[in-house]
Simulated scan of single mutants.
Amino acid sequence: MEDPLIELSDVGRAYDDGPPALRKAALRVWPGEAVAVLGPSGSGKSTLLNLIAGLDRPGTGTVTVDGVRVDRLSEAAAARFRRTRIGMVFQFFNLLDDLTVTDNVTLPALLAGTARGAAHRRAAELLETLGIDRHARAHPGRLSGGERQRVAIARALMNRPPLILADEPTGALDTAAGEDVGRLLRELNSEGQTVVVVTHDLALARSCTHRTVRIADGRIVDGRVAGDVGAGVSR
């Protein structure tokens, strides 16, 4: 049987003296799935994403991604792991305004040791696929929000990672641009890309994922196939 791409077991995380951000969280995400993590602000969904990405460590439990115990990685090893195995898309794009679109997209590949020529060929392919090749020499500040998020998605795909993590990817976009990004994530998943989207936007979750996971007060309280109230998370 195929192993899960993401597996969290009995994961807890607390900060200072406040209530736990996560409590005994358990989650499996399988290769090729598109999963939305839903919950209000402060529910623990961003903590969950940061633990999967190796940006944070659990106080209890284990986090395994693509066969690697990311909770055991050093900070430097976690950064190397993210560079090749996880593509990240953020609400506010996190692009470097002093670099061109092409330079932003190629940066992860160059940091991973890819030859510059190969990186530029890959970037040109991605920008054409995502419909923004005409902006290759532009700087991000000249683009619309939707175009900048497409650049961020191209950057996330640069090293062909098995997993895309998107943190509120439409939160800074207008409705039309948000629907466009949702459609793009759905298309990527239809081609086999595993996608986990952290959002409070139920419409986005329904448009681009198969399964929703709900978090409340640090606990995973519900999981279901999108659009099917009675379905569970087991596989």
Rank of each mutant, 00 (worst) to 15 (best):
M1C: 12
M1N: 14
I6K: 06
L8H: 12
V11R: 03
G12P: 00
R13H: 07
R13L: 07
G18F: 01
G18Y: 04
K24V: 06
K24T: 11
K24P: 03
W30Q: 10
V35I: 12
V35L: 14
A36M: 10
V37G: 10
V37A: 12
L38P: 10
G39Q: 08
G42N: 00
S43P: 12
S43Y: 06
S43D: 11
G44R: 05
N50G: 00
L51S: 00
I52S: 09
L55A: 00
D56N: 01
D56T: 00
R57Y: 11
R57W: 13
P58H: 03
G59K: 03
G61T: 06
D71C: 11
L73R: 05
A76M: 01
A77F: 04
A77D: 15
A78G: 08
R80E: 10
F81M: 02
F81W: 01
R82H: 07
R82D: 04
R85W: 08
M88N: 08
N94H: 12
N94S: 07
L96W: 09
D98Y: 15
L99W: 14
V101R: 00
N104E: 03
T106R: 01
L107F: 05
P108W: 02
L110W: 01
L110E: 10
L111Y: 02
A115L: 13
A118M: 01
A119E: 09
H120Q: 15
A123N: 11
A124N: 12
A124V: 12
E128F: 00
I132E: 05
H135E: 01
R137V: 11
A138W: 06
H139R: 14
G146H: 14
R148L: 10
R148N: 13
Q149R: 04
A152C: 05
A154I: 01
A154D: 01
A154Y: 02
R155M: 06
A156K: 07
M158V: 05
N159S: 03
R160D: 15
P161C: 04
P162S: 01
L163G: 00
A166R: 09
T170S: 07
T170I: 03
T170F: 07
G171I: 11
G171H: 10
A177G: 14
A177E: 12
E179W: 13
E179Q: 15
E179L: 10
D180E: 13
D180M: 08
V181F: 05
G182K: 00
L184I: 08
L185Q: 06
R186S: 09
E187Q: 11
N189T: 03
T194G: 04
V196M: 14
L202H: 15
A203H: 11
A205V: 13
S207L: 04
T209Y: 07
V213Y: 05
I215S: 03
G218D: 00
G218M: 02
I220L: 09
D222M: 10
G223T: 12
G223A: 06
R224E: 05
V225R: 14
G227C: 05
D228G: 00
A231M: 09
A231N: 09
G232A: 08
G232T: 14
S234N: 15
R235W: 15
R235Q: 13
